[in-house]
Design a protein around this nucleic acid. Structure first.
Lengths: 233, 233
DNA sequence: TGCATATTTCTTGTCGACAAAATAAATACA
DNA sequence: TGTATTTATTTTGTCGACAAGAAATATGCA
């Protein structure tokens, strides 16, 4: 009996949806379920050892975040990455980097920075270990922590969505992260965190913008080179 | 037999969720269901003449947009308006006004402006008729149309959420809209639309910012005066 | 054989029923 | 009479079954 179905009888009422949602979400963002993968409710209900009802609820939530697309009465599938409108993604990403970092400099509390610095240490460790997958996720966690210290839930929720979407895009290209750029990102993070700590709003905003544009330029370079992994799109 | 249950037998498969979602959403935004109202699944299933399954799906979607709050195993209710963190709402609203208008000036197509101008006419008519409720909804529709012509779905979806939330807030205060301000908004709209049409990105951004700050100042004035309708919070 | 139509199969959408959890009500006890 | 414990009620979470829609397959006909 595998891990998931073995939990069938000891599951608390109401927890099933969250389990399914979390696992599917991670599998989609990690491209274990690549864009276009069919989502079959019956198959999932067998896999997780529960009826289709909680499965469907998890799928409705995933659809609400745009991670899956549902055709009425027919097929549900993992949503495509929209490479045609990538510029609108970059616009939104850069703006959210800027504004969340700026607000962090303005509104953070000292205790917020402890968490931020811990995540920055995680990121530095991932860079040191040349673990590209860990870099992607710790980088997202770090910037989200900075954003949360800015205390604007509208911005953090959009930013979170953008960073997740970025996780899918970057995973296509993570090979190329084995170069000198990540170390530079560690230094940039340090500078940003110090500017936030010093409550230097303008500097924090400028550094965040430069950092974001750096990342965007990096992704765009990869896009035109087109040397991505053989993940079916 | 009332309107909703009479549709029971002629409903197309799959349409039930959308009907329930749309109606509940409007009722929440129009404060017919004020914040804190209990949401009873059985009651709703009787009202709409369908089983709890599609009702629940609609509720999951509403919860995803933050319009209702669900406590596990217990009570679902219309979410509260967060008056304590209003400044983060205003920050987000102003920024989205600015950025969506700016992008509209940059990326709109001529045919987009026809729809925008039609909605501006609707808004002007609502002002002329002193219909505060129509002003609120046509104003939101107008700015959303401008945003959509900027073709950045990340920004438009956040903006749409903010405008909806604003619909709830403004509805608390719509009495005070019977003054000279709305006419000024009509003129400001005209200026913004002309700047967008002329593709003057900087001017469009500046006008949008001033317009947004005008609105925010108006709401804030109402908040401190506190002369709101007797809607239970 | 090629195409249109009928049939089957597969997946989703909806239903009614039951079980679990939380609250409300009732009872027991001091 | 006041409080703790037990019981009943209410509401949500989950289930298995069935029906409707769409695609896949089979059949009929030229």
């Amino acid at each position: 009996m595998d891990n998931e179905t073995s939990l069938r009888n000891e599951r608390k009422r109401g927890s099933g949806v969250k389990v399914v949602y979390d696992i599917l979400r991670d599998e989609i963002l990690d491209l274990e379920l690549p864009p276009g993968s069919p989502i079959d409710e019956v198959q999932l209900s067998e896999r997780f050892g529960m009826s289709r009802t909680p499965i469907r609820e998890a799928l409705v939530r995933l659809a609400g975040e745009g991670l899956i697309d549902t055709l009425p009465n027919r097929s549900t599938m993992v949503s495509q990455i929209d490479f045609l409108n990538m510029h609108s993604y970059f616009d939104a990403l850069v703006l959210m980097y800027r504004v969340t970092t700026q607000l962090a400099a303005k509104y953070h509390r000292p205790e917020d920075l402890e968490a931020v610095r811990a995540l920055q240490a995680d990121f530095a460790a991932a860079v040191e270990a040349q673990d590209a997958l860990a870099m992607i996720s710790t980088n997202a966690a770090l910037h989200l922590a900075i954003a949360e210290s800015g205390r604007n839930s509208y911005f953090t929720s959009l930013f979170s969505r953008l960073l997740n979407e970025g996780r899918r895009i970057l995973r296509l290209y993570y090979q190329s992260y084995n170069d000198r750029l990540p170390r530079r990102f560690v230094e940039e993070h340090d500078e940003i965190i110090e500017a936030v700590a010093a409550r230097d709003i303008e500097l924090a905003e400028r550094l965040a913008r430069e950092h974001a544009e750096q990342i965007v330029a990096q992704i765009q370079k990869l896009l035109v080179r087109g040397d991505r992994l053989d993940v079916r799109l």
